[in-house]
């Protein structure tokens, strides 16, 4: 894929991306310390839909819950979706890509055929179909997003393996009689980790964005789980009267996805040997 971006000179992409990502991870890890209220239990109908104030920095929602606390806890949901589903994608994509590239033959043809079919199904639509089958819920989102977005990883891994398998010491390992699995995953895989890391980082961004979309449609996480997409979905009716309920979760999604995208871009620039 011919994506590339050098938004800023040098490594600014990488730095800004890493800072945003670390902030979000910190938010998720230290949520109980950072959040002024409990995201679900501290519901006080007396303060329903209050505008941002010194008590509630980001205002309150219809049930009188603190929006800021829910946004802070929401980072746990979004991050777990991004990391777990992308881990599944990476494992599937790398396994199929490495074996297809190294073993070749009928297995390669089969995997490439499968990958092409996967690529012809818009992954959002595929994820929707799986959510329809499994029903809403966090575990189901991991699966729906983890099973539908491995085709790019698979293709990139395969093409990397095809060139890596001609390297001298891989030949040497073959001559020494190493087993196929040992060569594939012990010798070749470490050589092709860079591009996989880049595409996985970008995949995390994609998964977080898609989870928000699915939850927005009502097919993702369900209330009262504080997920950013779910918060936006519930706040739709109140959007024109209490916009703060929608603005802050949206900003959180934006900042997180931007962080992972910049990190991915930055890693690519860092690892790209052709960079001037």
């Amino acid at each position: 894929m011919a994506f590339s971006s050098v938004v800023f000179k040098g490594k600014s992409n990488l730095i800004i991306g890493a800072v945003l990502t670390i902030l979000v991870i910190g938010m998720a890890v230290f949520a109980p310390l950072l959040a002024p209220y409990h995201p679900v239990n501290d519901a006080d109908l007396m303060v329903s839909e209050e505008a941002p104030s010194s008590d509630y920095l980001c205002g309150t929602d219809t049930q009188g819950r603190d929006v800021l606390s829910r946004v802070i806890y929401g980072s746990r949901i979004s991050l777990s979706v991004g990391l777990v589903s992308q881990l599944i994608n990476t494992l599937i994509g790398v396994f199929l890509g490495v074996t297809a590239g190294y073993l070749g033959g009928a297995w390669d043809d089969f995997i490439m055929g499968l990958t092409n079919i996967m690529l012809s199904i818009p992954s959002m639509i595929f994820a929707l179909a799986i959510m329809a089958l499994l029903g809403p819920g966090l575990i189901n989102i991991y699966l729906a997003l983890g099973l539908t977005n491995w085709s790019f990883t698979c293709r990139i891994t395969r093409s990397q393996v095809l060139s890596a398998k001609r390297i001298e010491y891989i030949r040497a390992a073959e001559a020494l009689g190493y087993g196929q699995w040992r060569i594939m995953f012990g010798q070749i895989l470490p050589n092709v980790v860079g591009p996989i890391l880049v595409i996985s980082t970008l995949g995390i961004a994609y998964a977080i964005l898609t989870e928000a979309s699915l939850s927005f449609l009502g097919l993702g996480t369900q209330p009262p789980t504080p997920s950013w997409g779910g918060m936006l979905s519930n706040a739709r009716e109140e959007f024109f009267t209490a916009p703060w309920i929608s603005i802050f979760p949206g900003l959180a999604i934006f900042a997180t996805v931007l962080g992972f995208n910049l990190l991915g871009d930055g890693l690519r620039d860092l690892l790209d040997p052709h960079k001037e």
Binding site: S5, V7, A212, S213, F254, V257, L258
Partner: peptide
């Protein structure tokens, strides 16, 4: 602008 455009949730 471009990296923001790919990162922004569309429905938002």
């Amino acid at each position: 602008g471009a990296v923001s455009g790919v990162s922004i949730p569309q429905f938002w």
